[in-house]
C-alpha cells in the first residue's frame, strides 16, 4: 500500500465561471491515494464541471489543481499529455468512438502512446475487456451493444493505460438496478485489485453507501460537507439533511418525482 497520507489530488480555492456566471465558488478539498471519493450534489450544481476541471478539459477562472503535487492548470501541453496518460475517465454517455470496434477503442491509447508490438496490444485489449466482462464482444461496434455494456467498455478504455486514477461521471445513471449494482462492484474491484483512486460523481444513494470512502457534498457551487457517509448523515446542515431524506424543495413536485425515480432502488439489500 502507498502512504495513505499522501494526496493524489489537491484542489485549492477553485473558482470556475461560464461567462459571468460563477458555477464553482472557491472549492478546497483533497483526494487520498487509493480511496474512492464520491462527489454528491443536486442536478446542475456543477459536478460535471468540477470533473472537467480535474481532468484539465477546462481551465478554471482561478485556483490550483495539484496532481501528485504539480499544478495542472499551468502546465504546458506536453506536460499535460504526460499527466493524461496516468488518468482515465468514464464519460456520462460513455463517449466511445462510434466508428471503431470495442477492441480498437481500448487499443487506441496503447497504439498511440506506447511502442508495444501489435500482438501485445491485442492481448492487453482482451485482458481489459475481460476485466469488465466483455470478452467475446471485441469486434462489436458501440452502436451494437447496450447502454450498460457501453459504460463497461468505457471503463475498459479508461483502464487501457493502467492509470493511477479514474474519474467516473454518473456511472450508473440510466441503468437498471442490477446492472448499476454490477458497475458499483466493478468500481470496487478496480479499486481493491489495482489500488486505484476513484473519483465518482453520482446521484444514487445506494451506490454511494456501497462504494464511498469519502463523500463530498456540493450545493450552489460550494462544498457543504466532506467526510465519511455516516458523518454526513449526522450533519446538521439543512441541505444535507434534505438531500439524504429526499425531501423536495417546497414549491416543486416534479423534482420530487425526479429524485424518487432515480432513488427508487434505495434499499441496499435489494440492490446487491
Amino acid at each position: 500500500m502507498n502512504d495513505t497520507s499522501e494526496h493524489i489530488i489537491e484542489v485549492r480555492d477553485l473558482v470556475v465561471k461560464y461567462g459571468d456566471r460563477t458555477v464553482l465558488d472557491g472549492l478546497n478539498f483533497q483526494i487520498r491515494r487509493g480511496e474512492t471519493f464520491v462527489i454528491l450534489g443536486g442536478s446542475g450544481c456543477g459536478k460535471s464541471t468540477l470533473l472537467r476541471n480535474l481532468v484539465g478539459l477546462m481551465r478554471p477562472y482561478s485556483g490550483e489543481i495539484l496532481f501528485n503535487g504539480r499544478d495542472i492548470t499551468t502546465m504546458t501541453d506536453d506536460e499535460r499529455i504526460e499527466v493524461r496518460k496516468r488518468v482515465g475517465m468514464c464519460f456520462q454517455g460513455s463517449a466511445l468512438f462510434n466508428s471503431m470496434s470495442l477492441a480498437d477503442n481500448v487499443a487506441l491509447p496503447l497504439r498511440e502512446h506506447t511502442r508495444l508490438a501489435s500482438s501485445t496490444i491485442d492481448i492487453q485489449t482482451k485482458i481489459k475487456l475481460a476485466l469488465v466482462g466483455l470478452s467475446g464482444f471485441e469486434e462489436y461496434l458501440p452502436a451494437e451493444i447496450s447502454g450498460g455494456m457501453k459504460k463497461r467498455a468505457g471503463l475498459a478504455r479508461a483502464m487501457a493505460m493502467d492509470p493511477e486514477i479514474i474519474f467516473y461521471d454518473e456511472p450508473s445513471a440510466g441503468l437498471d438496478p442490477i446492472v448499476a449494482a454490477g458497475l458499483d462492484m466493478l468500481i470496487r474491484k478496480m479499486q481493491s485489485t489495482f489500488n486505484l483512486t476513484s473519483v465518482v460523481v453520482t446521484h444514487e444513494m445506494a451506490s454511494v453507501r456501497l462504494i464511498a470512502d469519502t463523500v463530498c457534498m456540493l450545493n450552489a457551487g460550494r462544498i457543504v460537507g466532506t467526510g465519511k457517509i455516516d458523518e454526513l448523515e449526522r450533519s446538521k446542515d439543512p441541505f444535507i439533511q434534505q438531500f439524504f431524506e429526499r425531501r423536495p424543495d417546497e414549491e416543486s413536485d416534479t423534482r420530487d418525482d425526479y429524485i424518487r425515480s432515480l432513488m427508487g432502488i434505495d434499499l441496499p439489500g435489494n440492490a446487491t
Binding site: V83, R84, G88, F91, G93, F97, P109
Partner: peptide, 17 residues
C-alpha cells in the same frame, strides 16, 4: 459535430491524443 456532442472529442483529449 457528432463527436463533439457525444463527448468523443473530450475523450480524445483526456487520453492525451
Amino acid at each position: 459535430g457528432t463527436m463533439k456532442v457525444a463527448e468523443e472529442i473530450d475523450a480524445l483529449e483526456v487520453m492525451g491524443l
